[in-house]
Write a protein that binds this DNA or RNA. Structure first.
Lengths: 293, 293
DNA sequence: TTTTCTAAATCGAAAATACCGATTGATGTG
DNA sequence: CACATCAATCGGTATTTTCGATTTAGAAAA
């Protein structure tokens, strides 16, 4: 039994005339005859009475027609649903994001969610390590993160969003806040609170000091960035983050770090060879547009 | 899109392993690969993610699977329903019958209807002419009638049930009731009430007298047999019917008619080349069994 | 009746396609 | 790094679908 045969059957049932049905189906009459016969053989019951040249439905045919119709319809509905999905009338996207990029995500998120209210969105905050892991397990459609060697895997696709300089973040009333610029060496003088292991920034900062053979004064490592910023706000500690990781609303000062390769690259990371939903592509678009403002 | 492909897809979805799915489907892995690919092409969307050797469902795949499943199920249900029909768990039969054979039908009808309460039965009383017409229009599954040239059509099938002698039917207290046997000629002396045109018996009786060049005294022609019998019961009139057309319950006497070819043949008449439902075949069986008691 | 027309079934051939085995390429694993 | 595994691909084969032509048979017309 194949959908093709069910379609043939329904058309023949509709017209009760094989010749005309065959025409409308754009097949030959002999093909229709044969396919109907094959279906009848498989069902082990005639669907039509052939009294001479008169064709009428058998009781079996009438009963079976409903099922045939529904079978065809279900398949067709599936196809239509996919077309809709393609035009994202429905669907769900899951976005991973590091705290450092939450100010990038938020406006795009608001724009997208209001524009496509029917699409469910799940946002997962986490460390870069966690996000990479979730990407690998297909639990995310994409992740927003800064570039870093943790995330370098050949089956990932990368889209650059923008570059942001690393800055020292400090309370506005702290001594550091007056500086126009600051060197790595100077920072070693101050007590720091840094993102815990797992965050790309954590690794970046550790590597940075190591490369320059400097020992930073790391007082606290913490895996919650809002809390980290609260600590910084007290003036007792300072931290190092990309400039865009801090918003004006946070009420904190950012001082650029002097040195080479002090730029972080924010990017969209996604799995290669995984189908990119239209909704996801649209979200990329909004992200890029927002950044180019 | 074909049901075969949908089945392949669901198996692949179930196992998320093409090689094993192909094995369980008794096809080669390459065939499965190709058929899935073809389905994806038609749907214009990947159903699976192929990340290296890992196979996972896409969102589209997950959504489509429900429809695929239902489509297959509907077709399968149709098949199962037909199997049930074959074993007549359901269905409806329509039986045509002449009044003259109502006493043959009734016990079979009671037996069948109690044995297969789930089968709807429609009984249509009518003249042989009407029944033949309805058979031709497929409005009856079969008809019970006496044999007669009216009903001789090449696209009919005939099953003999039994033979019944023609008898004169009369009130038990009438003068005729005392006779052991009666001749055609004698009947012409008595006023008759006969079935109206259209009944096989009417034609049979008319032909009979004509063949013997006799003129019967036909006082009344009537197209309702119970009423006809009521008239006979008054003793004012007599009629001619097959012996089995009259029951003991009717309180009437039957006197065999002397002569050649005075036997009527009761039969089942049905359309050739029209599918005979199991229920109908079972009804035939019960009719035959009942008669052979 | 006989003839003519029409529609479904049938038949043989050809076109399409489902299928297979072998191979390839890619990816995890020991 | 070798090895095993799995999906994709390729070329060829087998099967199935399809078609055109013909046959068969009923219905309508002559």
């Amino acid at each position: 039994m194949e959908l093709r045969q069910l379609k043939y059957f329904l058309k023949a049932k509709e017209l009760l005339n094989f010749t005309e049905a065959a025409e409308q189906l754009n097949i030959s009459q002999s093909t229709l005859s044969q396919q109907i016969k094959q279906l009848e053989d498989e069902l082990d019951i005639p669907l039509f009475n052939r009294i001479g040249k008169r064709v009428t439905l058998t009781e079996a045919g009438a009963l079976f027609a409903d099922f045939a119709f529904q079978s065809i319809n279900k398949a067709q509905d599936g196809l239509l649903m996919l077309r809709d999905l393609h035009n994202f009338q429905t669907g769900k996207i899951t976005i991973g994001v590091t705290y450092g990029l939450r100010y990038v995500l938020t406006p795009a998120l608001i724009l997208f969610a209001t524009q496509y209210p029917q699409i469910k969105i799940k946002v997962v905050f986490g460390t870069s390590e966690e996000l990479i892991d979730k990407l690998n397990h297909l639990e995310l459609d994409f992740a927003l993160s800064f570039f870093g060697d943790i995330a370098v895997e050949k089956h990932f696709d990368y889209q650059n969003l923008f570059c942001s300089p690393m800055t020292v973040v400090t309370a506005p009333d702290s001594a550091l806040a007056q500086k126009e610029i600051i060197t790595l060496e100077q920072i070693t003088q101050y007590p720091l609170v840094l993102p815990a292991k797992g965050y790309m920034t954590s690794k970046f900062v550790h590597d940075l000091f190591e490369r320059h053979a400097l020992s930073p004064n790391i007082a606290i490592e913490i895996n919650d960035i809002p809390t980290l910023l609260e600590l910084v706000k007290t003036g007792n500690w300072h931290t190092i983050l990309a400039k865009t990781s801090v918003s004006q609303k946070d009420g904190l000062a950012t001082i650029p770090l002097l040195g080479e390769n002090m730029d972080r690259t924010a990017m969209i990371i996604s799995m290669k060879e995984v189908y990119q939903k239209k909704a996801v592509k649209e979200f990329y678009q909004i992200l890029h547009e927002e950044i180019n403002l």
